[in-house]
Write a protein that binds this DNA or RNA. Structure first.
Lengths: 312, 312
DNA sequence: TCGATCTTTTCAGATTCTGCAAAGGACATG
DNA sequence: CATGTCCTTTGCAGAATCTGAAAAGATCGA
């Protein structure tokens, strides 16, 4: 690999050489590509000088190829086709939904939602292969070479972009029976006199955050029971054992049927961040490959539907 | 064929893309070709912009190829090889060999043989320039960019090809006077009782190897005098000072005239390897440039003649 | 946390690229 | 033979691209 600093535009010279041979003169070639005959003459002269080979016999009426020029012409045509092919192949992968889609998600979301939706997606795009990887650990999109990772929070890595598929919030719920038996809950601070069923997040105190009119209140919550499974918490709450904080879509059916009542409806509540939902994260890119775009579009349309369907 | 007026140096961008992928970073690619990381970054960014395709996922420690980037890399490697082939093919067919021929040889062979032959060669090919470099060190054809190196042994580097210009062997010689005064030499082991004039090859013991009917005998030789100049050794031997081991063609005249007598003529003898002669080594290539071919042809015809001429 | 290495962007100077104009050549036509 | 048309080549001056340095921010490993 030699020094490339300020090197002559060799590819342009080769293109002009091929064009001059095809058109029969430097002037005609120049007219095709928007250059003057003088420029064409200079490029082809420079090409010959660098090669140290005479490619053309010039006259004002006839352009003749030397033997060396003939073989160089053939080979150069092939090279130029090779370049077009390379560009077309790359562009095709960019603009057509083809190739392999590498997707990561948490286990439960993958099993409950993605595995149900992906077959429908692949029916639409049969040339796309999908690899679905599930785990509880955070995916590294760049290093592990995933195209899309589904997360429950907006990604924080500056090199990532996200698309929100579903907006969710957390709500406080309890059974009608629990509400009748226990003191009325008017303010967030009243929660400390209640039995809370909390989501297990580690050995620390459990803090629930209440937001209303841009006023944030953080309350350390007494926890008589905790679990890392939302279904368990939902069931205990419906059975009248206490107050639980759960994602709205996970208890939509119970709230609708009246088995669970929402408490403090004027507050937004969370045990982590308010900005929650289901996000698809992907690498930032000037040119998003079509395969990723169609996948995201499909999921944006169908994940909410699938979750509603689950709630009925 | 689109407008080529002031188009970006696309070939350079492609070369840099391939180099960046191979080297693992823009900075390393730039170091190879003499450009700054900033320039490399700009070229590859421009390549992506023109294609409308993301080829690379950048981070400061890891350069990852997209799917489109992978296929573009493969195709682009082929294109670059195609360009080299086109150039080499044209060069091999040029009717008048032109350019500069860079030749290396050991000092004595260069002075005594090549300097006498090259003017005749250049009279045949006046458009060829010749650079002749002489030294005792081994030439690196690839790195030092020589076209031809004259060596006294067949080259061992697998990337080199060779053409044997002259077969030679080494012979033991002494003057008739020395032979009459000293004990008869019947076997190789008898040499240890003689005065040996040796070619200086370093501070180690001098070993002469004797081969007869596939039986090798290696003898550590007593050396009362050593020199790295064959003419000196030849003269001392002719003056009766001892036995010398010399290339046959260098003492052909003396042996013919009887001023030197060959000893142990039934043995092949050497102080290094038996496979000796004068070889022209050159880089392996699909298409041998004409300038090298005509030079080798000329030398293959004229080196043996020149050596015979010297011997008369 | 710090240091080393990396990529990206901006700026000003260096170099290449460009058409115009002039000169000369090769034909075809009258 | 003279003329016209089209061609290639070369030198010149202006336009555009290319370049590294500097600064900023990112990513690891010790």
């Amino acid at each position: 690999m030699q020094n490339l600093k300020r090197s002559m535009n060799r590819l342009q010279a080769m293109e002009l050489f091929v064009s001059a041979v095809r058109e029969g003169s430097f002037s005609a070639a120049g007219r095709r590509v928007g250059l003057s005959p003088a420029s064409v003459s200079r490029y082809i002269g420079e090409l010959e000088a660098q090669l140290g080979v005479q490619l053309l016999n010039r006259s004002t009426r006839h352009l003749g190829l030397t033997d060396a020029g003939k073989i160089f012409f053939q080979r150069t045509e092939q090279v130029l086709h090779g370049i077009e092919d390379a560009e077309a192949a790359a562009l095709s992968l960019q603009t057509a939904p083809r190739g392999t889609l590498r997707v990561h998600s948490r286990t439960l979301f993958g099993i409950k939602v993605l595995s149900l939706l992906i077959p429908g997606f692949q029916k639409l795009y049969p040339e796309l292969k999908v690899e679905l990887r599930l785990s509880e650990r955070h995916a590294l999109l760049r290093e592990d070479e995933f195209d899309v990772d589904f997360q429950i929070q907006a990604p924080k890595d500056p090199g990532l972009m996200q698309r929100r598929l579903l907006r969710s919030e957390r709500i406080l719920v309890a059974s009608p029976d629990y509400v009748r038996r226990m003191p009325k809950l008017r303010e967030p601070e009243d929660i400390t006199r209640h039995n809370c069923l909390t989501y297990w997040m580690g050995p620390d105190d459990v803090v629930w955050k209440f937001m209303r009119r841009n006023r944030l209140r953080e309350i350390v919550v007494p926890s008589s029971f905790s679990s890392n499974n939302g279904v368990v918490l939902s069931d205990l709450a419906a059975a009248g054992h206490g107050i639980a904080l759960l994602d709205d879509y996970t208890v939509a059916e119970e709230v609708k049927s009246g088995r669970l009542i929402r408490l403090l409806p004027g507050f937004r509540v969370t045990n982590s961040s308010f900005d929650e939902g289901i996000y698809a994260a992907f690498l930032q890119s000037s040119y998003l490959p079509e395969k990723i775009r169609v996948f995201l579009d499909y999921m944006a349309e169908n994940v909410p539907k699938q979750i509603k369907r689950s709630a009925q």
